[in-house]
Design a protein around this nucleic acid. Sequence first.
DNA 1: CATGAATGAGATTTCATTCAT
DNA 2: GATGAATGAAATCTCATTCAT
Lengths: 228, 228, 228, 228
Amino acid sequence: MTKISPKTARRDRIITSALKIFAEKGFQDATISEISKAAGVSDATVYEYFNSKEELLFAIPEEITEDALRGAERILPFLRGVDSKLRALVQIYMTLYEKNPQYSALIMLHLKTNRNFLKTKAYEVIRTAARMLLSCIQEGIEDGTFKKDIDPYLVRSMILGTIEHLCTRWHLLGTPSNLVEQVDPLVDLLLDGLRVQENSKNISLNLNFGGDTASLAKPASLKDTLES
Amino acid sequence: MTKISPKTARRDRIITSALKIFAEKGFQDATISEISKAAGVSDATVYEYFNSKEELLFAIPEEITEDALRGAERILPFLRGVDSKLRALVQIYMTLYEKNPQYSALIMLHLKTNRNFLKTKAYEVIRTAARMLLSCIQEGIEDGTFKKDIDPYLVRSMILGTIEHLCTRWHLLGTPSNLVEQVDPLVDLLLDGLRVQENSKNISLNLNFGGDTASLAKPASLKDTLES
Amino acid sequence: MTKISPKTARRDRIITSALKIFAEKGFQDATISEISKAAGVSDATVYEYFNSKEELLFAIPEEITEDALRGAERILPFLRGVDSKLRALVQIYMTLYEKNPQYSALIMLHLKTNRNFLKTKAYEVIRTAARMLLSCIQEGIEDGTFKKDIDPYLVRSMILGTIEHLCTRWHLLGTPSNLVEQVDPLVDLLLDGLRVQENSKNISLNLNFGGDTASLAKPASLKDTLES
Amino acid sequence: MTKISPKTARRDRIITSALKIFAEKGFQDATISEISKAAGVSDATVYEYFNSKEELLFAIPEEITEDALRGAERILPFLRGVDSKLRALVQIYMTLYEKNPQYSALIMLHLKTNRNFLKTKAYEVIRTAARMLLSCIQEGIEDGTFKKDIDPYLVRSMILGTIEHLCTRWHLLGTPSNLVEQVDPLVDLLLDGLRVQENSKNISLNLNFGGDTASLAKPASLKDTLES
DNA sequence: CATGAATGAGATTTCATTCAT
DNA sequence: GATGAATGAAATCTCATTCAT
């Protein structure tokens, strides 16, 4: 469709090289020289496309982050139920990070804690994605799937914090060896908690004494168990 | 009690200044000159106490991290039940991070993703603390408090990931404004999950007896409050 | 003929300045700053051309040493007899050192005792020249000009040692005031020791005729004078 | 006899350590710290005994050089003939250098080319020794052992240059493996050049043709004298 | 007298960035 | 538009030397 101008191709080569090198060595330890060499251009050419080293750094995650967001937006409308949406969102994150290790290394190890990154276009996209996650949680609260008294921001922090922690460990320590496999266990735990629910008995008692909660017996969790 | 040698005092001043400056600007953007000036010594004196800038960086968290670990080891024996222990551990982390914002900024923003930090003495202490958390989770599984089929490593990553995410947000965005307040909501969510449990004992008991079991709500958290 | 690229010119200016300053003050007491200023470039520019101060030091003697070697190789084929060759070699050394006092000061005072210099390209050239000298001595032994039982390595050490001693004194003490003038006295002294004394014939002739063979004295030196 | 005061002992330890370390690494690459540690004293103590690093450097060769000179002065009176004296002097140098490799490394590799060393007490002693050598040569000229027209300074430079060259090579390249063994070959080479030639062949020829040439002992030297 | 402790004074080296061609 | 070449501006780190105790 869109013709790739040689200019765009060059820019892409610079970004690709920069991603690789920044991800490996971090912002400060990478040099423009190294990046330009890897991209097959001169130092000065890098400055034709980006005004500064930092601008280059921040340009890297733009495209991929936007693509990922668009992907999520395409998938979500097909899902019914906040459980499913939540699970899908977690899976989207994990898949993105696992399939694009240089990208996730850059984000987790080098950008996440960079104050200037917060003012960035790419960060704005990331916030949009985070807002989708928040909406999903809020929706769950509103529709009665989730508890009424939970703090959706806290829940979101749990989800993102866990994802990021796993991803960071994956990069630094190599464990877990696989991120996507963690999706279901993680979502199941989020939904149902750690604690043994001694409710089968209770529920039966409830049912005995008047409750009509039979149909509510943790259907999702059962389903999840099957699915996982 | 212990006489503070002038040498130790000087070393401490250097560490304190370094903590402040590294926390604010990061390792690369901080200069030895700045740190030495803040400590009231010369550049060369910094090198009398630390062989390199990086050695100084890594020396900073040593003491405080060890102190925190010892604090945790003093508290835990007094707690009964994995719930209480888990809650206490989360609270210890959050309290540490909130009371020592420079320390937590240093760890969250600058050390956590530093590969060399992994080889450090302070990191070893951090791992010890993380092992305590893991043991607590495993204990919960063994004693039937927690579900049998959960992955204790995943649970730990959830806990640490959430704590770190909250702490990082706190530093970068200022929200939440308070970390310790997040302890109970977080632990409750961890223990019981997001999803409305229409099965809880509480409910069934409520239904059965119509009684005021309100006071039993979240017993552990009350206990924790007293203990903390 | 050959266009001098501005880059080469700049490099040459740096080398020239470095020669002057290193020769005067030695490696450690010379600063890059001083050299770059003398060359009319910035400190950083010096590092565009040479990777380190030491690399710059070792680059200095390369060209001149090679030129000198090539000069020697052009001259020697025209000489007949090891006497003449030996004399020519000594003269080549002395001329080189006297005409290029900065070069010889650098070599004699600063490089000759530098262990790293031994691994250098310029030193390799110097060794080649020294091998020429050795060959000449060996040739003299083989063709019967020199005594059979002399150690050619020792002779070479005598020659080079003397040259270097004279040159070093010349630099440090100003005496002798002239190096090339020492060539003939030195070679004569050396040869009269080395050379097989063909005096039987002379003497017998003397005795036979009682004549004055004064006019035959030191024929080689006359020849040398012409050749030199 | 003389009691060794602890002060002298300390000074000696410092000098010994300094000799070792300066000889190994040179003046600039050796540090006071290293030397003081090797001597078992503090940095500051070094400065109690020597006003500067350079003063320490120059103090090192004092004693040993003086001892060597005194040794030579004790030996020479027992020798008859400049040949013997010359040989003895060369042997004294070589022995000194070979038996005291740290000392000779210091002199050859680090002091010989140091301009400030020339103003030094130790250098004065070295000059005295060199003057003995010169006197010996001059004596040889005067008493007719050596040719009349040789330049004694040049001869001295030949002798010292050769010795130093051999010694330097010995340190830097390990060859020759033995210095003292070079004494006789060297002196023989020198003398055969210097000395009036008393060639066996000549003598026999003399005897053939002229009867009693007993009185003609050393005819070559006579001839040389005439020719030169 | 010995020294622990401190530091002044630099020097090398690195790189992001600029600019003329 | 691309780049070769140059450099300004620092920052880390080193050490000889000093001085109070």
